[in-house]
Design a protein around this nucleic acid. Structure first.
Lengths: 348, 348
DNA sequence: AGCCGTTCTGCAATCGATTGCAACGTAGTG
DNA sequence: CACTACGTTGCAATCGATTGCAGAACGGCT
């Protein structure tokens, strides 16, 4: 405790040091040496290194990241961007976004990256993606959902490598995507309900976004193939919680004939639906079956617990990060389409 | 379309420009002028300004943020940090965190700030706050929850201005906090149940964190004052979803006597409790009343809908940001303790 | 023409850390 | 003693944008 400050003035308490040069002055070495010492470079003498590190600790010194990143031309920051393309009122606090974001953040933090959160509204800002990609602020970009911006994303992906997107994979697309087979998922959901003997179904969800459109197509295909007078109506339900609830209420009372089962585009929609049905005195699953999509953690916490089509979000997030890392290092990465999984609980 | 490139070589397509100097070369002006033109400084001729901006667009040029931020000594980035002090297994995807984070992100993005997400684990990294604060990466810090790190936060707050924390306010504390009157909230919850004639209550929540401890104290006070044989047991339930569910199951079967009402430390705990009770064949609220805390959006989506103590998260987030802005501009800001509000729905 | 004032542009220093290269000191060897 | 080799350290250029200050260009006025 008494052996580490032999140079500075006696009365100096613990003056805050703001840059390497100052610390170098105190340590009696050059700035370059301090930089190397703090970076644990092997070429600096072990004793000086320790001395400098101790001094840095004592004076509460941290290297200025801005300067460091500028010089090294890498930032250690990954942007997670959420495009609010269609449905601009969808809040960033959407439970699916937040769940995926949480897992991504954990994954990235563990690898020493910082996470920068970006909300993008394409209608208001034409080159939204460019802004993030070319800001010089990030080493890579993870995108949650394609919204209706498929072409814009393709455009950027052609010249910008470190980009991985959660969403659909179309044959021959340029950007690397990780996601679930939405068509199959939609089909599985509908088939499950049909298999339970239900014939009059409704799909709840706005099909402007690619992913949900595919889910709808899957459900349609299942119903068409099934035949036997099965039919599928469609109500576009928006994703913002505020709109959703009312729209579902309206939908439930305005639909044609007696609906037996609802295929919901997301767990959030499914939960809101169950709520509204409860309100209307319709019991789930006795009077109407409801099946969700996503299998968010909260699907297990609803009453009744949600039967849903599971996307493996945790593993998907890990795969996104893995692919991004590969791309940052100059490598390449293929798309990943994960199989959906039917999780049978109590709502259908 | 044909009037903006009269200097460069004829065959040059749209070469990517990487820095101001290059663009200056193309435009035939100096770097300084380009910088000023792109920043819309009034002192540059309107015609040159437009020409330069057009050129920048055409070549897909964006100023390097790292360099800009270094020079200007401000970053335009706010860190949102989540201390996982006690209860390290609590996931960053905790619904309360995520909800508050979502609103904060919206609020900050609107003001032109970027949001940097930081998960901090004090046990593993002693100077966790210092790392963020002194990295030179952010203009300010918003913290979600105090966890058990009150003293560490105080320490930093004494010398670091732009810091605002969601959490409790103790008399004379140095850091600026925004939060709810947790003691009063806990008291209101218990009083409400007592008022319904329930006498045997349990508080579900781990009191290591300050906020929850205060809620518990409030509930205790209410029960003590009420007298008449009312009593309050306590089960520490952790905040991570995985642990929570099992612990609640155990709690419900191991408690002393016939419990009539549960005061939960959070909505997440309340929902998990309702689930477990449902499993055990205990009807809510008929057999047992359950009251939550927070009033997260999902409180309205549970079945039965949650009766809960509302924290005004949206307004709280706005206030946090407002105070942070004031501090960044060198001003000062007082703490805010918001009154909790009893929201009566169906679970109690 | 000469002078002043205004408006615009260029020059060069600056932010703070990093790193290739040169130079230093010391020890070891012939 | 001279010379090489190695291990350290210092020097100075560099990353890219910003900005105070000086100076150029131009118009207007006497």
């Amino acid at each position: 405790m008494a052996d580490d400050s032999d140079i500075s003035a006696p009365e100096a308490p613990v003056r805050r040091v703001r840059n390497i040069a100052e610390l170098a002055g105190i340590a009696g070495v050059s700035a370059g040496t301090v930089s190397r010492a703090l970076a644990d470079k092997p070429m600096v003498n072990a004793r000086t290194r320790d001395r400098i590190q101790a001094l840095a600790r004592k004076h509460g010194f941290q290297v200025n990241q801005m300067a460091s990143k500028l010089r090294r031309q890498k930032t250690g920051v990954i942007a997670v961007v959420i495009p609010l393309g269609h449905d601009r009122r969808q809040h960033i606090s959407d439970p699916f976004f937040m769940t995926l974001l949480g897992v991504l953040a954990d994954e990235l933090t563990e690898r020493g990256y910082d996470v920068m959160l970006s909300r993008a509204i394409p209608q208001e800002d034409a080159n939204w993606l460019d802004r993030v990609v070319n800001s010089g602020m990030v080493d890579g970009v993870l995108m949650i959902g394609q919204s209706d911006q498929f072409d814009a994303i393709e455009e950027v992906a052609r010249s910008y490598k470190p980009l991985v997107v959660w969403g659909s994979n179309r044959a021959g697309q340029a950007h690397c995507s990780v996601g679930t087979d939405n068509f199959l998922g939609g089909r599985m959901a509908a088939e499950y309900l049909l298999g339970k003997g239900l014939r009059s179904l409704v799909f709840l969800g706005d099909t402007t976004g690619i992913e949900i459109d595919e889910r709808y197509s899957g459900a349609q295909a299942a119903v068409a193939e099934f035949g036997q007078g099965a039919r599928l109506q469609h109500m576009p339900i928006h994703l913002s919680i505020e709109e959703m609830t009312d729209e579902i209420g309206v939908a439930m009372t305005s639909l044609d004939g007696n609906i037996e089962g609802a295929v919901c585009a997301s767990d959030a929609i499914a939960m809101a639906t169950i709520r509204q049905l409860h309100e209307l005195g319709v019991a789930v699953p006795a009077d109407m079956a409801v099946i969700g999509f996503d299998d968010l953690p909260l699907a297990r916490h609803s009453v009744p617990q949600l039967t849903t089509i599971r996307q493996n979000i945790a593993s998907g997030a890990a795969q996104m990060v893995k692919r991004l890392m590969a791309k940052i290092e100059g490598g390449d990465a293929d798309a990943l389409v994960m199989p959906p999984e039917l999780v049978i609980r109590d709502s259908a």
